[in-house]
Design a protein around this nucleic acid. Structure first.
Length: 730
RNA sequence: GCGCGAUUAGCUCAGUUGGUAGAGCAACCCAUUUACACUGGGAAGGUCGCAAGUUCGAGUCUUGCAUCGCGCACCA
């Protein structure tokens, strides 16, 4: 075989081998410095006055390892970045890591559990230090995995959410919110997980439909319905709708003596319009400490609130003989006692209702009244809505605009306090005696301004999303760093549709609030990556596909383009191994195309000034030009799923199957004119093909480029990653 | 309950100004050591969920319905 290819690189004699190529190529890129836009300018690749193009990588959870979803993020963002870089933009893709407060702490707690330890009873500093070590150890592995995906991000600008400069920005925002009266410390009802011992925002709550018993209990002259008799010890208000004729003999504020679970009590009638007359008996008693609705009724009527259940889910002394019991154990015992006392009217067996659970562990959320820091979201949301409605932000796919709008219109205040150690400490002091709180960045406030008691440090940390919502400007060094001036607002925010509220909408609000500008122009949301059967991947189902298994088996290029073809934004994608395998074949096809072109173009160099093309080649050039303009337009519209498919089709089924096949005859029996024309066409077309495919399949194309460079007189001697994107036929 | 999607070839999905349906994979037939078996050629496969409406013409626009998925909501 060797004698057929006297002049060919020996690499080309074997099938394309990603394993022998990828690390070497990534190293070349990284050493070139071209991931950094400043160096591209320095080296004359990018014009100093070029338009910027910026993407913030969603900060990867530092404790984890790369999953298929990350694979998709890295691929899409790298495609955008590489394309824009080739188009001459001053291109910055800034990578980062997230301490991922609660998520990481949960992972670490599981590890502790396995070791027979528990975070409770551990010293705070000790626990923090352990989680920090754990995170730092894991973070180096995730970073190498991000590299292995071919990500052309600027590692010199990498950020971590716990970096002092990021924390500093977060603190300033916290103080600014207070100054603008958008922050308050409130004794409010919050969602509490008794397993994880922390409160949550509304978004960390999952809904679960359950079938439980529904109890009708005799409460004096009334019958009240409840699914949770164990909360009823302290119920001393009985509420009904003011227009309910059944109860018109009772007046608001009227007192009634009645026999209750642990003896006689005095109840007060409350008339409130929130009661649904159609539901149950139209009468209910309220437990303001442990129920959102009840809390609101109590607030409206200025009623007492009493804690019945403690933070561990156990009954307090108010429950009398049941005190100390966990609510799950207490419920049947309470009903038994009430039945004996004749207080149970009836029990409905199959009551279907929705209960709130902790999104991590499934434990039923027990609302509790707690003093926490809240952000008033309404004013922030209104500004964001204004920007969204006047189309300052493009949503891809578009329907996410409606989804965001709906959420923003109904937004509630954001509890940003978390009772965990792994996170950014809240820079505030608390008065234990009157519960007042003070934002104190400089550590200068020591006594309560209300009651003059000595203050203590707030031991809570921020909700992770509070810091990540400031990511686009915090990473760029707001306000003074030149990067902020050069790259903000960023261009595209590409992330999972799942976290539109958690992250995207909050970034818009905080970005607008702090910098006065929407932090990005386009929101590109991708869907979930599912297994081959279209099932959500989960550890418990055992169907998790590790992207690194696929990349090592089929090559990163095959994995990347396999994730992209047919993957429209916003819709979920079934990841099939067959598909990835077929793109491995494609990488090899490109390899063989190169081998063929280089062998038949022996002795020829591509010359961009060549004009003596045959009619046939001119027609092919026209077709090629149309193809390039078409896909360039689609690249600009973020339609990567179409471009990938078309590029695949053009390379394989036009260039290889038709053009190369007919070339065989030309080189065998064609005229000299035909041969020269065809050689010029093949060389120039192959060059364009690898350029177009480079954002999708960066490794194999870069490798082919290096083999081509010897053959093409006019070819840029730099790396393909900084070669100009083809424009029509140039 | 409200909202948002989806429903097109066996499977996964494209189909952007309305002009009698496309790709990849799988399956089928044929070829063959070729730049490439990580191959080439060919054929097959769909009343575009259902029903109305607008239109000369609807996968595409309107309305209703059905099924599936997701999000939001304080029904005790």
């Amino acid at each position: 075989m060797d004698k057929d290819f006297p002049d060919i690189d020996p690499k080309l004699l074997a099938p394309y081998d990603p394993a022998q190529t990828e690390d070497r190529i990534y190293k070349l890129w990284e050493e070139s410095g071209f991931f950094n836009p400043d160096i591209c300018i320095e080296k004359g690749i990018t014009k100093p006055d070029a338009e910027p193009f910026t993407i913030m990588m969603p900060p990867t959870n530092a404790n984890g390892s790369l999953h298929a979803g990350h694979g998709l993020v890295m691929t899409i963002e790298d495609i955008m970045t590489r394309y824009k870089r080739m188009r001459g933009y001053k291109t910055l893709w800034l990578p980062g890591l997230d301490h991922a407060g609660f998520e990481t702490q949960v992972v670490y707690e599981k590890k502790l559990e396995k070791e027979g330890r528990s975070r409770f009873g551990m010293n705070r500093e000790e626990l923090y230090k352990e989680i920090l070590d754990f995170t730092l150890t894991n973070s180096s592995s995730i970073k190498s995995q991000v590299r292995s995906m071919g990500s052309s991000c600027d590692w010199s600008r990498e950020k971590f959410t716990l970096d002092p400069d990021i924390v500093n920005v977060v603190y300033k925002t916290f103080a600014k919110l207070e100054k603008d009266r958008l922050l308050y410390r409130g004794k409010r009802i919050v969602s509490w997980c008794s397993k994880h011992q922390t409160s949550f925002s509304d978004l960390e709550i999952a809904d679960e439909e359950r079938t439980d018993k529904f109890y009708y209990l005799k409460y004096g002259p009334f019958v009240i319905g409840t699914a949770r008799p164990e909360t009823k010890f302290g119920d001393k208000y009985v509420v009904m709708h003011p227009n309910d004729d059944r109860y018109k003999e009772y007046e608001n504020g009227q007192k009634i003596d009645l026999e209750w679970i642990n003896g006689p009590i005095t109840a007060t009638i409350i008339k409130d319009e929130s009661v649904d007359m159609e539901f149950g008996t139209g009468v209910m008693t309220i437990t303001p400490w442990h129920d959102m609705t009840d809390f609101e009724i109590a607030e409206r009527h200025n009623l007492d609130k009493e804690q019945i259940i403690n933070e561990q889910g156990k009954l307090l002394p108010i429950a009398g003989e049941f005190a100390g019991l966990h609510i799950s154990k207490a419920r049947p015992l309470i009903i038994e006692k009430m039945q004996k006392k004749g207080l149970v009217d009836k029990i409905e067996e199959n009551y279907k209702h929705v209960v709130h659970t902790c999104y991590k562990c499934g434990t039923i959320i027990e609302p509790q009244i707690k003093s926490q820091w809240f952000i008033k979201m309404k004013p922030l949301a209104l500004k964001a809505l204004e920007k969204i409605e006047n189309s300052s932000i493009e949503y891809i796919p578009e329907h996410y605009k409606k989804i965001s709008t709906y959420w923003l219109e109904n937004i509630r205040d954001w509890n940003i306090s978390r009772q965990i150690v792994w996170g950014i400490p809240i820079p505030a002091k608390i008065c234990d005696s009157c519960d007042e709180g003070y934002v104190d960045l400089e550590n200068q406030i020591n006594n309560c301004k209300k009651c003059d008691q000595k203050l203590r440090q707030d031991m809570d940390t921020f909700d992770t999303w509070f810091s990540s919502s400031q990511w686009p400007f915090a990473t760029l060094g707001f306000p003074a760093n030149p990067d902020f001036k050069n790259y903000y607002p960023t261009d595209v925010m590409e992330t999972a549709g799942e976290i539109i509220f958690f992250w995207v909408s909050r970034m818009i609000m905080l970005g607008l609030y702090v910098t006065g500008e929407v932090p990005f122009k386009t929101v590109y949301l991708h869907g979930l990556v599912l297994d081959a059967k279209g099932q959500k991947m989960s550890k418990s189902k055992g169907n998790v596909i590790n992207p690194l298994d696929l990349t090592s088996k089929y090559g990163t290029d095959a994995f990347r383009i396999g994730l992209i073809v047919g993957n429209t934004p916003g819709t979920s994608l079934a990841l099939s191994e067959d598909k990835i395998r077929s793109y491995k074949n494609f990488a090899n096809k490109l390899w063989n195309i190169t081998r063929f072109v280089l062998s038949v173009c022996e002795g020829e160099q591509y010359d961009s000034k060549f004009t003596k093309y045959t009619e046939r080649d001119l027609a092919l050039i026209k077709e090629r030009g149309d193809f390039i303009s078409e896909i360039t337009k689609e690249m600009d519209e973020f339609k990567f799923y179409i471009v990938a498919e078309k590029a695949y089709h053009y390379s394989w089924h036009s260039f290889a199957d038709i053009i190369l096949e007919e070339s065989k005859a030309i080189f065998l029996e064609g005229s000299n004119t035909e041969k020269i024309s065809r050689k010029q066409f093949l060389l120039s077309t192959l060059e364009k093909i690898v350029k177009i495919l480079h954002p999708f399949m960066p490794f194999v194309t870069e490798e082919i480029w290096s083999l081509l460079s010897a053959k093409n007189k006019d070819q840029d001697k730099n790396l393909l990653m900084v070669a100009p994107w083809p424009i029509k036929n140039l």
